[in-house]
């Protein structure tokens, strides 16, 4: 019995610690590039409204991306992106919910830059896939910087690229993510 009480109290204590180790931002940056080689059409968009939270005690990481906040150089592309490809009225958010997969190599309580692998569920266009994304986590005092670069196959998320534009729109989008989180 004593043991159980001890376990519970340890657990309770750890949850208390948890609440003090959350890092968050709502102005993370994400960009993607789906241009094809040799095409003059630059299919590139930036979004500065990424919501991102990390729990340093559990290694849980969540990203939420409002799809309509992607800005394109050409407004018509932005319209097509929302209307034809992402259907952002139906699927307003893209989301990633994951966990640091190599906690042994990432000491979130200590300043430094770590190469991390984050595994979890990525939901785009209403379709969820399991992904593992490599990135770096930089801890500096009460702030955390997350950086990642990875590719997403549009087909995996049921985003159709019509054959008519196949020479302009790549089948893979390369995604760059940078997020500065502060302790909450």
């Amino acid at each position: 019995m004593k043991k159980i009480i001890l376990t519970i109290s340890v657990f309770a204590a750890s949850t208390l610690v948890v609440s003090a180790q959350k890092y968050m931002t709502r102005t993370g940056k994400i960009s993607f590039d789906a241009s094809t080689n040799g095409s003059p059409e630059k299919i590139y968009a930036i979004n500065n409204e990424v919501a991102n939270i990390m729990d340093a005690s559990t290694g849980d990481i969540i990203f939420q991306v409002p799809v309509k906040s992607f800005k394109f150089e050409r407004e018509l592309m932005q319209e097509h992106f929302n209307e034809n490809y992402m259907e952002s009225d139906k699927y307003p958010k893209a989301e990633f919910k994951g966990k640091i997969a190599n906690p042994a190599e990432v000491t979130l309580t200590k300043d430094g830059t770590y190469n991390a692998k984050v595994s979890g569920k990525l939901t785009i266009h209403g379709v969820t896939n399991d992904v593992t994304v490599p990135g770096t986590i930089t801890i500096k005092g009460s702030s955390v910087k997350l950086k990642a670069k990875f590719a997403v196959k549009m087909h995996d998320y049921k985003i159709d690229v019509p054959s008519l534009v196949a020479d302009k729109v790549s089948k893979d989008a390369s995604i760059t993510l940078e997020s500065d989180l502060t302790q909450k």
Binding site: T15, K22, M24, A51, N52, I53, D55, T58, D60, I62
Partner: peptide, 9 residues
């Protein structure tokens, strides 16, 4: 826990 992270966000 997961939910509360989302809620917090």
């Amino acid at each position: 826990q997961d939910d509360s992270l989302l809620n917090m966000l």
